[in-house]
Amino acid sequence: MSISLTINGETHATNRDPLTPLVDVLRDDLALTGAKAVCREGFCGACTVLMDGQPVVSCLLPIASAAGRDIRTVEALSDGGELSPLQKALEQHDVVQCGMCFPGMTVALTSFLASNPNPTREQVKQSLVGNICRCTGYERIIDAVLAHAQAMQGGG
């Protein structure tokens, strides 16, 4: 039985088992390796994608449940190779280290900032409770996010 997935605006049919985690289809079949399968149990957030605009972990999302939903991966955030304003802020603040968590973190933050354009430091931290970073100790990422949010407010 074929399942139809809408990923980054394109439709893909797959014959994989309906319980296959979405992250495996993204990585193995579609070469979208931005989402990382680090823990496969929803704690690390490295495989976060947007489903109908909301962040979800693609390691615990069966493709059957993703069918018919609008899935956006980290690759869609910098469409055409242009970094999103948030990604640019993270680049300019030089906060990346090994980088494995950043695709998931960027996806989660993009969605969070869309609904909370002017967050407090604590709100940003709470929004990242499902995104582990082992390298950076978080605070400089949060500095960059707050500076970005402020710049976006200032810029109208």
Binding site: L32, T33, G34, A35, T73, V74, E75, L77, S78, G81, L83, Q87, L90, E91, D94, V96, G99, F102, P103, T106
Partner: peptide, 10 residues
């Protein structure tokens, strides 16, 4: 290397 790491291309 930040650019590709941030956009999932690394």
């Amino acid at each position: 290397d930040a650019r590709d790491k941030l956009s999932g291309r690394t």
